[in-house]
Design a protein around this nucleic acid. Structure first.
Lengths: 204, 204
DNA sequence: CGCGGGTTTGATGATGCTCAAGCCCGGTGG
DNA sequence: CCACCGGGCTTGAGCATCATCAAACCCGCG
């Protein structure tokens, strides 16, 4: 259950066997079935979750009833509503399992204690947050300055295999901040750009 | 010169006098005149800067030549291109002083040494990044799910005094990802919504 | 006074949304 | 085995939002 976690940890920090053993004790394993929720809007986010297996999404619903996906979390990623977790205020996000999941949960008190007893984790989480911030800023800039087509093209360029394979189109649309209809039309346009001669020249 | 920095530090971590003295040595004071640059596109971001005084903006220019402001940094804030600072790759951002500034610069090697010698800073930067991430995620969601008018209204609701006072409209527009013309029209609409009776009913 | 920037205003067009319908395909039950 | 259902993807027509281009305006400053 902890294999992937320790593998990921070792990429950033070196833990002694002692520390590994101790750190295990702070996590609570949890399995989620597809469509079950780790967090629902209005609840306080009590855990940050490390994804050992499966796939989750975090999304909000705005006043017009539209869903907007904020983040996906694949194997080896962390997911939570940082704001609610930190402040203990009710969350505006929902975190749902898109596939059957195996998670390692870390409560606020466990995190605090772990950071106290194994300060190396301060560094680990700092690096994690830094990378997350870099990625989020990049996404923000692209959402402000690029067209939907450009954003979609870049997205599938970054993850040409996993994304279309494990995530249905209407959720990619929601992630990009566009409607499923628009995404469908964009895909058609891209295809006709790539092979503009096919429809025109193949005449038998 | 270090007053504001230590004030901000004390909100998050407790430093001994020894540590304060030591930490000073890692920073290099720097003054910038209005319109001078801390970082220019194509250069590697060599410093994270703490703003003792003044105001800066970080922006990118996309392929169509449009500027998009990524971040402002007021007194007490930090600013850098985290990605370039971390990877030493050339930056895609420009960081420019919007007013005369007094900064405290921290180079990568100084940061590393400081984190080594005063591990409390790991925690400080972790908290900093956490707050920055929360804010950036919020901005991302609003840029994906709200209209320009909604985003502008929320922005000036959050900072009704400082923002319009110190930041010209066309830069607010760039921050919101809209054109100056659109922002101007939005402002007019908001005004006429607030007092719809004025034009209609005052007839002499 | 005239210049130059920032802001405003207008006309037109592109991008993406809404609503509505049709299609495709896998799953279910008769 | 097939008919039916439902969800996801596609397609179309019309519309809202926002960008673009161009011109006017406003105001501080040399």
């Amino acid at each position: 259950m902890f294999e992937l976690l320790f593998q990921k940890l070792e990429e950033k920090i070196k833990l002694t066997e002692e520390e590994k053993k101790l750190s295990r004790s702070f996590f609570v394993p949890k399995k989620l079935r597809k469509k079950q929720y780790l967090l629902q809007e209005g609840d306080v986010c009590k855990y940050v979750a490390f994804v050992e297996k499966g796939l989750l999404r975090s999304y909000t619903i705005n006043d017009k009833g539209q869903e907007h996906i904020n983040q996906f979390a694949f194997e080896g990623w962390w997911i939570a509503d940082q704001f609610s977790f930190l402040t203990r205020e009710p969350s505006k996000y929902n975190i749902e399992a898109m596939e059957d999941c195996e998670l390692l949960l870390l409560s606020k008190s466990s995190e605090d204690e772990m950071l106290d007893k194994i300060p190396k984790f301060e560094r680990y989480f700092r690096i994690l947050l830094q990378n997350n911030l870099i990625a989020t800023q990049k996404r923000l800039v692209s959402s402000l300055s690029q067209t939907a087509e450009e954003r979609y093209s870049e997205l599938i360029q970054d993850c040409p295999t996993t994304l279309p394979h494990r995530i249905p189109q209407h959720m990619l649309a929601s992630f990009l901040g566009i409607t499923p209809e628009t995404l469908s039309r964009i895909r058609r346009q891209i295809i006709s750009k790539k092979a503009p001669h096919i429809e025109d020249n193949v005449q038998g």
